[in-house]
Computed example of a mutant assay.
Amino acid sequence: MNATKCIIVREEVWAALSHMREPGMTFSELIEEMIEHEKKRRLGEDIKRIQETEKLVEIPL
């Protein structure tokens, strides 16, 4: 379902987002790309934290 929502941002945030967009890219596409990037960053942090704090064992296949 497509829904249009208004998000209020400060003018400097709008300008920064505008500069991040590639030609022809919508703000929705930019935000989707940013969300995926953040998900991957968080996953990497979680993996690093687990490797540093948990005792891992190898499972033979």
Results as ranks from 00 to 15, higher is better:
M1L: 12
M1Y: 09
N2I: 11
A3P: 01
T4V: 11
T4L: 06
K5F: 10
K5C: 03
C6P: 01
I8V: 14
I8T: 13
I8Y: 06
R10Q: 07
R10N: 12
R10A: 09
E11M: 06
E12L: 08
E12D: 15
E12Q: 13
E12S: 14
V13I: 12
W14K: 11
W14G: 04
A15D: 02
A15M: 03
A16S: 14
L17S: 00
L17T: 00
S18W: 01
S18K: 05
S18G: 15
H19T: 14
H19Y: 11
M20H: 15
E22Y: 14
P23N: 05
P23C: 03
P23S: 06
P23E: 03
G24E: 08
G24S: 05
T26Q: 01
T26M: 01
T26H: 00
F27P: 00
S28G: 14
E29H: 04
E29N: 07
L30C: 02
I31E: 08
E32A: 12
E32F: 06
E33M: 09
E33F: 01
M34V: 11
M34D: 05
I35S: 06
I35L: 08
I35Q: 04
E36H: 11
H37D: 15
H37P: 02
E38F: 03
E38M: 05
E38A: 09
K39M: 12
K39C: 12
K40R: 11
K40P: 02
K40M: 11
R41W: 01
R41G: 04
R41Q: 12
R41I: 03
R41S: 06
R41P: 00
R42K: 09
R42E: 07
G44T: 10
E45K: 15
E45T: 13
D46K: 10
K48H: 13
R49H: 10
R49W: 07
R49A: 14
I50N: 04
I50T: 07
E52N: 02
T53Y: 00
T53A: 06
K55G: 06
K55L: 07
L56R: 04
V57T: 14
V57F: 07
E58F: 08
E58K: 09
I59H: 07
